[in-house]
Design a protein around this nucleic acid. Structure first.
Lengths: 103, 103, 103, 103
DNA sequence: CAAGAATTATGAACCC
DNA sequence: GGGTTCATAATTCTTG
C-alpha cells in the first residue's frame, strides 16, 4: 500500500531547516510541503509546455502567411519523426502475411 | 488568406520580381530556406516540449513513491485549471443529475 | 452491482403523482425520464461495445495459439484501414516540400 | 508452391473442396485460410464496434439538444462504472489533498 | 458559435 | 504485477 510521503530526495535547504523544527507538517496525514512542491513543480512545467505550444502555433501561423500549407508541413514533421522508428519493424513477417492475403 | 507558394496568378510576376532581389533560393516555387527554417524551429521546440513532458512524468513517479495517489493529484491539477465558478457549476449539475437518477 | 430501477424513497409517490399530470416529471428542473433513458441507452450500447471488444480479443488469442504473431496481425489490420485514406492525400505538395528539404 | 490469388468473392464451395484435399493451403508457411478468416472476423467486429460508437454519439447529440450538459452526463457514466467504494475513496483523498492545499 | 479535425490525456492490454 | 506500449476518450483549436 502507500507509504508516508516523507522527503527522500534533497529538496531545498530551507526545507531541511523547516524539517528540523517539524519533520513533516501534516494535514490529515498528508505531507503538505511535499504535496505543495509536487503541484507547484508540475504546474510550472506545464506552463512552460504551454508556452512552447504557443510558440509552435506562432510559427505555423507565420508559415501560413508566407504561403505554406500548414497541413502538409505537419505531414512533413510526422514523416521525419516516424521514419527512424520504422526501420526496426518486423517487415519480413509483415510481408509474408501480406502476400498470403494478396495485399 | 493564404496563397500556395505556387504562383499561378498574376502574383507570379511579383514573385519573380521578389526573387530577383531575394536570395532565398526556390525549388519548385518553394522558398527553401524559409521552409527549412520553419521545420527546424518547430522540431527544436517539440524536442523541448518532449523533455518537459518527461520531467513531469518523473515528478509523478517520485510522488507515487512518496505515497501519493497520482490519479488524485491529476484531479487536483485539473481542478486548479478551472475557474472556481466553473467548478461549482459542474458540481451542482452533477448533483442534480445524480439525485434525479437516485444515485 | 445492484441498482434500484425505481424510486425507493418517499419521492416515488410524488413522482407518480406528477406523472399523471406531466408527461415528463422533473426533479430539480431536470426531465428525469429523459435523463434516465439517455443513461440507460448509452450504457446498453457501451456494454455491446465491450462484448465486441472481448470477441476480438478472443480471436487474437486463438490466432496466437495457432502460431500467428498478433502484433503483426494488428499491423495488417491497421494497414488495411489506412490505405484507402491515403489515396486522397496531397501527395503532390508533400513531394514538392520533401524535395525542397532534400528528404 | 506458387502464390494463389484468393477469391475475394463468395466462393465457399470451392474453398471447402480445396480443404478436402488440403486441410489448410499454406503460402510461405502460413495457413492462408486461417489467416484470412482471422482478419475478416476482426474487421467485421470492428465495423460493428464503430457503428455502436456512432449510435452513442447520436444519443449525446440528442441529449445536448434537449438541454443536457453532455460533459456532466459523461461524468455520470464514469461514476456508474466505478465501485461505490472506489468513488468514496477517491473523493475522500481529493478532499484531503484540497484541504492540505487550502483549496 | 457550432461542427469537425487535430492534439493531448487517460485507460486498457501486453510483455517481462 | 509493474512498467510500457497501444487504443480510446476528452479536450483544444480551427474553420465554415
Amino acid at each position: 500500500m502507500s507509504e508516508a510521503p516523507f522527503d527522500t530526495t534533497d529538496d531545498a535547504a530551507a526545507s531541511r531547516a523547516r524539517q528540523a523544527a517539524n519533520p513533516d507538517p501534516a494535514v490529515g496525514g498528508v505531507a503538505v510541503d511535499r504535496l505543495r512542491s509536487i503541484i507547484d513543480r508540475v504546474e510550472r512545467l506545464e506552463e512552460e509546455r504551454k508556452a512552447l505550444a504557443s510558440d509552435i502555433k506562432d510559427i505555423f501561423s507565420e508559415a501560413k502567411s508566407a504561403g505554406f500549407d500548414v497541413a502538409v508541413l505537419k505531414q512533413i514533421l510526422r514523416l521525419r519523426k516516424k521514419e527512424p522508428a520504422e526501420i526496426e519493424e518486423q517487415e519480413t513477417l509483415l510481408d509474408i502475411y501480406r502476400r498470403a492475403l494478396g495485399m
